[in-house]
Amino acid sequence: MLTDLLGIPPQVLFGQLMLGLINGAFYAVLSLGLAVIFGLLNIVNFAHGAFYMLGAFATIFITQYLGIGYWGALIVAPLVVGAFGAVIEYFLLRRLTGVDHLYGLLLTFGLALVIEGTFVKMFGASGVPYPVPEQLAGGVNLGFMFLPWYRAWVVVASVAICIATWLLFERTKIGAYLRAGTENPKLLQAFGVNVPLLTTLAYGYGVALAAFAGVLVAPITQVSPLMGSNLIIVVFAVVVIGGMGSIMGAVVTGLAMGVIEGLTRVFWPEASATVIFMVMAIVLVLRPAGLFGKTA
C-alpha cells in the first residue's frame, strides 16, 4: 500500500480526504456566490464574508424569535440576507457602475468592516453557539472515521445548491438574460429587458448563497462576528484559481482545494493554511485567467 509506504495509516488519509471534501463543499458554495457576482456585476465582493456571517447570525435570530428552527432558517435566512444584499446593490453599488473595479472592492471591504465591527460590539468576538438540529445529531462510524450526520448533510446540501445554480444560469431563460447582460447590457436593454433589476437580483442571489453557507456552518463552528473574515481570503484564492466569474470553475475548484488542503494536513500540517495560495501562485503564472477562465 502506498499509504503504508509513506508511514501514514489509511484511516488518517481517508479521514482527511473526507473532511477536505466537506470543507471543499463550503468553499464551493461561497466561491460560487463570488463568481456569480463578479461574472455578472464585475464587482469584487469583499463583503461576502460578512454576508456569510450574517447568514449564520440570522439562523440564530430566526430560531430564537420566529421559532421555525434550523430547517426554516435554511430558507428564510438566505432570503432575508439576500434582500439586504439587493438593497445594498440598489443604493450603493449601482453608483459605481462604469468606474474601476477597485472602487467596488473598497466599498464592499468597508461595508464588511462596518458590519463585522457592529457585530463584535454587540456580541463580542467569542460569538454564540448554535446546536446541531436534532434530526442530524450523532453520526456513523465509517471504519476509518466517525462521520457526523450533519457533515454529510452539508455536502449533500452544498452540491445540490451548486447544481441548482448551474442549471439556473445555463438552462433557463432568466439565466440566458443574465449571461447576455454581462456580454452587452445596452443591447439587452434595447430588447426591453430590465437590466438594472436583473443586476440587483443577481447580486441578491450571490449574497443569498453566502448566507446559505452561513446557515450550513452555524451548527459546526461558533457563530462569531469574525468567522467570515477568516475565510474570505481563502475563498477569493479559490475563485482566482477557478477563473474569475466562472460558475463551473468556482464549484470544481472549491471541492478540489478542500481535498488538497485535507491532503496537506496529513503530510505537512503547518502548510495547510497556505497551500491554496501556493496553488494560486502557480496557476497565475501558468494560466493567468484561471483554470476555467476564458483567456482574453
Binding site: 488518517v12 479521514g15 473532511l19 459546526i220 462569531s224 468567522m227 477568516n230 494536513r265 500540517p269
Partner: peptide, 29 residues
C-alpha cells in the same frame, strides 16, 4: 494555524493517536 475555525481535521488526528487525553494548547476562539 492561529486563529483557526475548522478543527475537524486536527480532532481526527487526535482520535487516531489513541491518546487518553487531548490537550488544547490554545486559547480564546
Amino acid at each position: 494555524p492561529f486563529p483557526a475555525s475548522d478543527f475537524s481535521s486536527f480532532v481526527l488526528q487526535a482520535q487516531a493517536s489513541g491518546a487518553k487525553v487531548v490537550g488544547l494548547a490554545n486559547a480564546g476562539g
